[in-house]
Design a protein around this nucleic acid. Structure first.
Lengths: 129, 129, 129, 129
DNA sequence: GTGGTCTAGACCACC
DNA sequence: GTGGTCTAGACCACG
């Protein structure tokens, strides 16, 4: 599947699931009407507890990203893609903002910071090829 | 004072204190032998609980960034600056790495990501002027 | 048909089917000996799952509201009308009681509650004209 | 305390807790800034599982009825009273509407329905004296 | 002490 | 099979 959970990156597991579902919807990897993996199925894949998946899915329903189809499962809601696309940048930008802000507070010099960011971006690009 | 605590940026408060002390030491804002504010004093300044400051100071002692001077308080340890300088980049790089990794997992396009980073850096530069 | 299913009013769907069959019998809309629609037929009409209808019919047989006629289907049992008439008030009264009890617990004033009830009754009368 | 949970009235327990907190806030029984009972405390009082209370409180935070005060507990949010007052009528009206609608669908006669409602209201008034 | 998160496993309603 | 709810109990961070 398309998810990748890291139990110790600071974000709660259920939150990582929420974000990645949103990202997948924003990106079109999950289309409106398509079913997400069942709670039990995804829990097995990610090797986490079903309740944790259920919690993430519940919050995604509250935000109308998913909707429940009785007895069949949870499907991506109509119109969710648009909302998720809008939100995606914000979700990322906000985490990025925190890190960069801290970096500047640390008196890290403007050029050093840029160099650091560049090196990380390049590292990412290499792995992404 | 030189610290800026944000109670809701995901990082634990005691961890923000630890990081910012290390940054100040790395930067020379706190020099070897210089006393840090007392637990109560810093807690009052940052409007956080003294126990939280105490915990941060305790861990900083464990890492030999601070050392207790009998009857006087806690002072920056000799040699701490060097260690903190080395660590500073790593602390920041590691958080940055997580965020950028998530961003790429979100299928954010390479150029979009660069644009996002640039805009945040510029925003930071402006405020830092 | 005479039924009106609301998948999200808190009541289980099979329960709504049961109640509405009982109501129809109590009211004479379904007379003793008359056949109810087949499981598949009713499921199609109400756009719900046949198993759900089957379950409702099964419980209605247990309560002797319906009886199976070999090879023909399910018919309203003799004497069912009388029992359903007696039960109808109780079914409704009990739900009504819960709701009004909660309303009073909410410290809703006696007059406000009456006004609320009146306005809902009027709204109902209008639509029922 | 002011809560009264009924594990078998159709509403989920966590939902009853949510509604009753909102009602208490709407009514002024809980004022802005006041702390609600702790998760463990309320769980003990209501003889339910702490997780169930935690879930209710979590959703109340999402709706900004409660806000968390680090290490101290959960307090009624500023402005919550106004929102809860507005919502209270709707919460009750919507349940009432369902019940009355079903009653009319049951072909219960207009006068019979009124009589039923009146008798329940009087019953309530008596107990409320 | 507080809330937050996670795991484990149960039962129910619905398809 | 599906999700929804509830219980029980663990661990963590914070005050």
């Amino acid at each position: 599947m398309f998810f990748d959970i890291n139990p110790s990156n600071g974000l709660a597991i259920y939150d990582q699931v929420i974000r990645q579902v949103k990202f997948a919807v924003a990106d079109g990897a999950l289309e409106a009407g398509e079913f997400v993996p069942s709670v039990r199925e995804l829990a097995k894949q990610l090797a986490i507890n079903p309740n944790t998946v259920a919690r993430a899915y519940r919050e995604l329903q509250n935000e109308q990203v998913l909707e429940s189809v009785r007895g069949s499962g949870l499907a991506v809601a109509a119109g969710a893609a648009k909302r998720c696309r809008g939100e995606r940048l914000e979700l990322i930008r906000s985490r990025l903002h925190e890190v960069l802000t801290e970096a500047r507070q640390s008196q890290l010099d403007r050029r050093e910071l840029r160099a650091l960011v560049e090196s990380e971006l390049k590292l990412l690009d290499k792995r992404g090829d």
